[in-house]
Protein backbone atom coordinates (compact mmCIF):
# COMPACT_ATOMS: atom_id res chain seq x y z
CA UNK A 1 0.00 0.00 0.00
CA UNK A 2 1.36 3.37 -0.99
CA UNK A 3 1.20 5.79 1.90
CA UNK A 4 3.04 9.09 1.57
CA UNK A 5 1.43 10.55 4.66
CA UNK A 6 3.86 11.03 7.53
CA UNK A 7 2.94 11.81 11.12
CA UNK A 8 5.88 13.91 12.29
CA UNK A 9 7.96 16.79 10.96
CA UNK A 10 11.06 14.67 11.62
CA UNK A 11 9.81 12.12 9.09
CA UNK A 12 8.79 14.86 6.68
CA UNK A 13 12.27 16.40 6.80
CA UNK A 14 14.29 13.18 6.70
CA UNK A 15 17.42 13.54 4.56
CA UNK A 16 17.33 17.33 4.36
CA UNK A 17 20.89 18.61 4.79
CA UNK A 18 23.06 21.74 4.70
CA UNK A 19 23.65 23.37 1.32
CA UNK A 20 20.48 22.11 -0.34
CA UNK A 21 18.41 24.08 -2.83
CA UNK A 22 14.87 24.55 -1.53
CA UNK A 23 11.97 25.40 -3.84
CA UNK A 24 9.49 27.25 -1.68
CA UNK A 25 5.88 27.63 -2.83
CA UNK A 26 3.59 30.55 -2.08
CA UNK A 27 2.86 34.01 -3.38
CA UNK A 28 2.30 36.87 -1.00
CA UNK A 29 0.92 35.33 2.18
CA UNK A 30 -1.18 32.77 0.29
CA UNK A 31 -0.14 29.14 -0.20
CA UNK A 32 2.95 29.44 2.00
CA UNK A 33 4.20 26.16 3.53
CA UNK A 34 5.26 28.01 6.65
CA UNK A 35 5.05 25.02 8.98
CA UNK A 36 7.52 23.11 6.81
CA UNK A 37 9.84 26.11 6.92
CA UNK A 38 9.52 26.12 10.71
CA UNK A 39 10.60 22.48 10.59
CA UNK A 40 13.67 23.45 8.53
CA UNK A 41 14.56 25.98 11.22
CA UNK A 42 14.05 23.36 13.91
CA UNK A 43 16.24 20.91 11.97
CA UNK A 44 19.09 23.43 12.00
CA UNK A 45 20.14 23.10 8.35
CA UNK A 46 22.10 26.01 6.90
CA UNK A 47 23.79 27.36 3.73
CA UNK A 48 20.52 26.87 1.91
CA UNK A 49 19.69 28.25 -1.50
CA UNK A 50 16.03 29.22 -1.45
CA UNK A 51 13.97 29.75 -4.59
CA UNK A 52 10.83 31.75 -3.80
CA UNK A 53 8.90 34.54 -5.48
CA UNK A 54 9.18 36.96 -2.57
CA UNK A 55 11.86 37.43 0.05
CA UNK A 56 9.52 36.52 2.86
CA UNK A 57 6.56 38.47 4.18
CA UNK A 58 5.32 38.89 7.71
CA UNK A 59 7.45 37.41 10.45
CA UNK A 60 7.18 33.66 9.87
CA UNK A 61 8.26 31.23 7.16
CA UNK A 62 11.09 32.40 4.91
CA UNK A 63 11.49 35.63 6.90
CA UNK A 64 12.23 33.61 10.03
CA UNK A 65 14.52 31.21 8.14
CA UNK A 66 16.58 34.17 6.89
CA UNK A 67 16.54 35.80 10.30
CA UNK A 68 18.09 32.62 11.70
CA UNK A 69 20.92 32.99 9.17
CA UNK A 70 20.15 29.74 7.33
CA UNK A 71 19.86 31.13 3.82
CA UNK A 72 23.08 31.68 1.89
CA UNK A 73 21.46 32.54 -1.40
CA UNK A 74 18.03 33.65 -2.49
CA UNK A 75 16.64 33.28 -6.01
CA UNK A 76 13.53 35.40 -6.41
CA UNK A 77 11.67 37.85 -8.62
CA UNK A 78 10.42 40.38 -6.11
CA UNK A 79 12.49 40.69 -2.92
CA UNK A 80 10.44 43.59 -1.56
CA UNK A 81 7.82 42.87 1.06
CA UNK A 82 6.41 44.19 4.31
CA UNK A 83 9.42 42.72 6.12
CA UNK A 84 12.82 44.41 6.31
CA UNK A 85 14.75 41.28 7.32
CA UNK A 86 15.91 40.42 3.80
CA UNK A 87 16.87 44.02 3.06
CA UNK A 88 18.98 44.21 6.23
CA UNK A 89 20.79 40.93 5.52
CA UNK A 90 21.36 41.91 1.90
CA UNK A 91 22.80 45.30 2.77
CA UNK A 92 25.07 43.65 5.33
CA UNK A 93 26.35 41.26 2.64
CA UNK A 94 25.00 38.25 4.54
CA UNK A 95 22.84 36.89 1.76
CA UNK A 96 23.35 36.53 -2.01
CA UNK A 97 20.57 37.49 -4.37
CA UNK A 98 19.72 36.31 -7.86
CA UNK A 99 16.88 38.32 -9.38
CA UNK A 100 14.89 36.44 -12.02
CA UNK A 101 11.88 37.73 -13.98
CA UNK A 102 8.86 36.02 -12.46
CA UNK A 103 7.80 34.19 -15.60
CA UNK A 104 11.35 33.11 -16.34
CA UNK A 105 11.54 31.77 -12.79
CA UNK A 106 8.30 29.81 -13.19
CA UNK A 107 9.44 28.46 -16.56
CA UNK A 108 12.93 27.53 -15.30
CA UNK A 109 11.23 25.51 -12.56
CA UNK A 110 8.75 24.01 -15.02
CA UNK A 111 11.66 23.09 -17.31
CA UNK A 112 13.49 21.39 -14.46
CA UNK A 113 10.38 19.34 -13.70
CA UNK A 114 9.97 18.39 -17.35
CA UNK A 115 13.57 17.38 -17.93
CA UNK A 116 14.32 20.38 -20.13
CA UNK A 117 17.89 21.61 -19.56
CA UNK A 118 17.48 25.15 -20.83
CA UNK A 119 15.26 27.22 -23.10
CA UNK A 120 15.26 30.48 -25.05
CA UNK A 121 12.89 33.32 -24.20
CA UNK A 122 12.48 36.95 -25.30
CA UNK A 123 11.96 38.01 -21.67
CA UNK A 124 14.90 40.12 -20.52
CA UNK A 125 16.60 40.60 -23.90
CA UNK A 126 18.53 43.88 -23.89
CA UNK A 127 18.28 44.21 -20.10
CA UNK A 128 20.56 43.47 -17.16
CA UNK A 129 18.92 40.04 -16.93
CA UNK A 130 20.57 38.98 -20.19
CA UNK A 131 24.09 40.03 -19.22
CA UNK A 132 26.54 37.16 -19.57
CA UNK A 133 23.91 34.88 -21.10
CA UNK A 134 23.74 33.42 -24.59
CA UNK A 135 21.43 35.42 -26.87
CA UNK A 136 20.23 34.01 -30.18
CA UNK A 137 17.88 35.08 -32.92
CA UNK A 138 15.11 32.51 -33.19
CA UNK A 139 12.33 32.92 -35.76
CA UNK A 140 13.32 36.54 -36.22
CA UNK A 141 13.25 37.44 -32.54
CA UNK A 142 16.18 37.85 -30.14
CA UNK A 143 15.99 35.43 -27.24
CA UNK A 144 18.08 34.75 -24.16
CA UNK A 145 19.01 31.29 -22.91
CA UNK A 146 17.84 30.40 -19.43
CA UNK A 147 18.76 27.24 -17.57
CA UNK A 148 16.37 24.96 -15.73
CA UNK A 149 16.13 25.59 -11.99
CA UNK A 150 15.79 22.31 -10.08
CA UNK A 151 15.61 21.86 -6.33
CA UNK A 152 16.84 19.25 -3.90
CA UNK A 153 13.59 19.65 -2.02
CA UNK A 154 10.33 21.43 -2.74
CA UNK A 155 8.13 22.64 0.11
CA UNK A 156 4.51 22.88 -0.93
CA UNK A 157 1.24 23.99 0.68
CA UNK A 158 -1.91 22.17 -0.48
CA UNK A 159 -5.61 22.28 0.37
CA UNK A 160 -6.38 18.54 0.11
CA UNK A 161 -4.10 15.52 -0.14
CA UNK A 162 -4.67 11.76 -0.25
CA UNK A 163 -2.23 9.00 0.67
CA UNK A 164 -0.93 8.77 -2.91
CA UNK A 165 0.00 12.46 -2.74
CA UNK A 166 -2.69 13.70 -5.12
CA UNK A 167 -3.27 17.36 -4.34
CA UNK A 168 -5.71 20.23 -4.73
CA UNK A 169 -5.06 23.87 -3.98
CA UNK A 170 -7.39 26.62 -2.84
CA UNK A 171 -8.00 29.63 -5.12
CA UNK A 172 -4.82 31.65 -5.59
CA UNK A 173 -3.03 29.35 -3.13
CA UNK A 174 -2.02 27.29 -6.14
CA UNK A 175 0.60 29.76 -7.51
CA UNK A 176 4.09 28.19 -7.59
CA UNK A 177 3.14 25.11 -5.53
CA UNK A 178 2.31 22.48 -8.18
CA UNK A 179 5.12 23.64 -10.50
CA UNK A 180 7.70 23.38 -7.75
CA UNK A 181 6.37 19.95 -6.80
CA UNK A 182 7.54 18.65 -10.18
CA UNK A 183 11.06 20.08 -9.99
CA UNK A 184 12.67 18.69 -6.83
CA UNK A 185 14.25 15.36 -5.92
CA UNK A 186 12.02 15.26 -2.85
CA UNK A 187 8.70 17.08 -2.63
CA UNK A 188 7.28 17.61 0.82
CA UNK A 189 3.70 18.80 1.22
CA UNK A 190 1.80 20.30 4.11
CA UNK A 191 -1.91 19.80 3.52
CA UNK A 192 -4.88 21.43 5.23
CA UNK A 193 -7.05 18.33 4.73
CA UNK A 194 -6.13 14.66 4.40
CA UNK A 195 -8.81 12.86 2.42
CA UNK A 196 -9.48 9.22 1.53
CA UNK A 197 -7.91 7.86 -1.65
CA UNK A 198 -10.47 8.50 -4.40
CA UNK A 199 -12.17 11.33 -2.55
CA UNK A 200 -10.67 13.90 -4.90
CA UNK A 201 -12.46 13.65 -8.24
CA UNK A 202 -9.70 12.50 -10.62
CA UNK A 203 -10.66 15.32 -12.98
CA UNK A 204 -9.97 17.81 -10.22
CA UNK A 205 -6.53 16.60 -9.14
CA UNK A 206 -4.29 19.66 -9.59
CA UNK A 207 -1.01 17.95 -8.81
CA UNK A 208 -0.88 14.16 -9.24
CA UNK A 209 0.92 12.11 -6.62
CA UNK A 210 3.75 11.13 -8.98
CA UNK A 211 5.31 14.52 -8.13
CA UNK A 212 4.89 14.15 -4.37
CA UNK A 213 7.02 12.20 -1.87
CA UNK A 214 5.70 13.09 1.58
CA UNK A 215 2.56 14.67 2.99
CA UNK A 216 1.98 15.96 6.49
CA UNK A 217 -1.36 17.20 7.83
CA UNK A 218 -1.19 20.85 8.91
CA UNK A 219 -4.70 22.32 9.29
CA UNK A 220 -3.56 25.85 10.02
CA UNK A 221 -6.64 27.52 8.56
CA UNK A 222 -6.68 30.68 6.49
CA UNK A 223 -3.71 32.85 5.57
CA UNK A 224 -3.67 36.13 7.49
CA UNK A 225 -5.25 39.24 5.94
Amino acid sequence: MINKIVQTMAEAMAGVTDGMTVLLGGFGLVGQPNNLVDALIELGVKDLTVVANNAGGGTTGLTALMEHGRVRRLVCSFPRSNSTIFEELYRAGKIELEIVPQGTMAERIRAAGAGVGAFFTPTGVGTKMAEGKEVREINGRMMVMEYALPGDIALVEAWEADRWGNLTFKLSGRNFNPVMATAAKTTIVQAQHIVELGAIDPQNVMCPGIFVNRVIHVPYGDPPF
Partner: peptide, 12 residues
Protein backbone atom coordinates in the same frame (compact mmCIF):
# COMPACT_ATOMS: atom_id res chain seq x y z
CA UNK B 1 17.63 44.91 -3.86
CA UNK B 2 15.97 45.50 -7.19
CA UNK B 3 12.60 43.82 -7.66
CA UNK B 4 11.48 42.99 -11.18
CA UNK B 5 8.47 40.74 -10.57
CA UNK B 6 6.67 39.91 -13.81
CA UNK B 7 7.32 43.21 -15.63
CA UNK B 8 9.88 41.85 -18.09
CA UNK B 9 7.71 38.86 -19.01
CA UNK B 10 4.66 41.08 -19.48
CA UNK B 11 6.52 43.68 -21.51
CA UNK B 12 8.03 41.07 -23.82
Amino acid sequence: APAVGGAMDLAA
